[in-house]
Design a protein around this nucleic acid. Structure first.
Lengths: 340, 340
DNA sequence: CTGAAAGCGCTTACAG
DNA sequence: CTGAAAGCGCTTACAG
């Protein structure tokens, strides 16, 4: 392995000079710069990052953290798209990503994760931080490591998907199609900070249309396809008058559609069913799902940009990323359409 | 930040002693060990990884590399599942994952990636290495960095999905259902080493059934849904006698199903269509896809285990992971079933 | 504009 | 069983 030392000898200058030329410090003669670069070229020199990190205190690595809970992380397309955005921004800035997926137990996050954060190996951290049970960034804050959270935990620097706006858009879409008998498939609020926001968005929009949200029949799932099917069964058996079902995520919507069909409803002719998230299969499902896209890559990019600002001593403002309504074929006006 | 030095002072021993106790070197009195651990505990000491890396030459980081080509990496569920396996094994061994997605241009992989590999920041590398255009591991081999490749590039240490077996299983399934008029939706061989293997598997299995594979009508797509639809259109228009279509991946199979339906065929009653990969939406598609699952998590785990062996000076054997046939509802016997 | 020297926080022969 | 000391490969005041 070629070292700075060797480059210095070859170029006939001191190691200090090589170091400074490489870090683009001004004040060097063209001549010196040329000699150094030539030696670097000839020797194929690449700096040792550990050494650089130790002496400068900066690693040019950021930790990208997805808490692993219910083992769901690696099945979640949202994470992949977040990662895509983070990667794009890191690549632009010449940073590397250290990926960490800490396990949450009753004692908190695993020791390995905590050591990683405290080890000085990352200049900062961007984390998915949206599980009420515990914030994955607490340890970062204790060590004053630059950190930005994606989600609703109370982090000074954060980016959030505007769940209220998303829920507003989907409810408005359904109401404007003319539906008035609407069922909701929800989820326990402990699982995710976004649940309550989405519910609130649905509620306030219903009220804007002079409807009583509390009168909407509601069933509860757990985000899974099966739970959506079960909940749809409940809803349709107890409230056959329903003409539309709003699900808090796409997978439950898929289950709901299958179950509704099994009960003799055709979608969207006899029943509108909409989801949330716009996972990849939403577009190829039959029928393709009307849903909300959270723009995960943009969230990832915004969070990473924000982190770099914090690392550079800045004090950026939090960011809210607006989701967008994707209208496909699982929604349509009710049969005897009383236009809104 | 607490340093080794501070721990040593607190415990009343030398830094050498602390270091050795922490790295579990034997030959220490219970007493010394206790004093050291107590000091560590009280001070909340966590070693600085950069310092440790610099002096020991080991970082306990491995690079996980997915070459970014056609921008497809972040839409590919295969990658996510590979990552899941890699992560599981790293977690077990106390390693961290540095994720890198180098861009390939005509000059090769981007400079940033090459520097990372040469920078000494990773103890080893596991890479998806299956694109004929170029091996992402070449630079690792030049630097003699421990490396294992996932795919068919000629790496000494590699793990491969047994594409021949996968193709054999799917062809056998289709033939055993009784199909004899079979169309193939393929892909250009330059994209991926696996294409030719899968084709070979299909061919040899057809021959085992005394059929002439060259007589099977064939159309070409590019892995995308749309290309699958287009290819299916071609196939069905020129060869309406076809009773089954084998697609080299699931997305093309989905496009093919939609197109076949548009042409008045119902699946699987009037036409069997099968895929390859078992992406998540394959299970919720209508109809659910018969396909091949490559066991990506197992591939990731095997590759990572192999890398650790290499890092520890071992000389592990290459591994072939057998894919498994997943029979769902997109395949059925042909209408007038001439049983095999 | 350039260099000598200290120091970043560890690990590791070596000696005792 | 324990410690003094060198060294890993850089960066960074400081001096000139």
């Amino acid at each position: 392995m070629t070292t700075l030392q060797r480059v210095a000898e070859r170029a006939g200058v001191s190691t200090a000079t090589v170091s400074k030329v490489l870090s683009n410090t001004p004040y060097f003669t063209e001549e010196t710069r040329r000699k150094v670069m030539e030696a670097v070229e000839e020797l194929g020199y690449v700096p040792n990052l550990a050494a650089r990190a130790l002496s400068s205190g900066r690693t040019h690595i950021i930790a990208v953290v997805f808490p692993q809970i219910f083992d769901a992380i690696f099945t979640d397309p949202f994470m992949l798209h977040l990662l895509e955005g983070v990667e794009a921004e890191c690549h632009k800035q010449g940073y590397n990503m250290l990926m960490s997926t800490p396990r949450l137990s009753s004692q908190g996050f695993d020791a390995h994760y905590q050591q990683l954060i405290q080890s000085g190996y990352a200049d900062g951290i961007v984390a998915l931080d949206n599980i009420p049970a515990r914030s994955v960034l607490q340890i970062a804050h204790e060590r004053e490591l630059p950190a930005v959270g994606i989600g609703y935990h109370d982090n000074k620097y954060h980016v959030r998907s505007d769940d209220i706006s998303g829920a507003t858009q989907i409810m408005q879409h359904v109401l404007e199609l003319g539906h008035r008998q609407i069922g909701i498939i929800s989820v326990a609020e402990e699982l995710n900070f976004s649940v309550r926001r989405r519910l609130n968005g649905l509620r306030s929009t219903a009220e804007k249309f002079n409807m009583d949200f509390n009168a909407f029949p509601q069933a509860e799932g757990d985000f899974s396809i099966n739970s959506g099917a079960r909940a749809a069964g409940e809803l349709l058996n107890t409230h056959p008058e329903i003409t539309a079902v709003i699900c808090l995520n796409d997978r439950m919507a898929m289950g709901a559609i299958q179950q509704a069909r099994a009960l003799g409803r055709s979608i969207p002719e006899n029943l509108t069913i909409v989801g949330y998230d716009d996972i990849p299969s939403a577009a190829v499902f039959a029928p393709p799902l009307t849903t909300i896209n959270q723009q995960a890559p943009e969230i990832g990019r915004a969070a990473t940009r924000m982190l770099f600002e914090v690392i550079d001593g800045g004090n950026p403002h939090p960011v809210n990323v607006p989701p967008v309504l994707i209208v496909r074929q699982s929604s349509a006006p009710p049969l005897e359409s009383p236009r809104a």
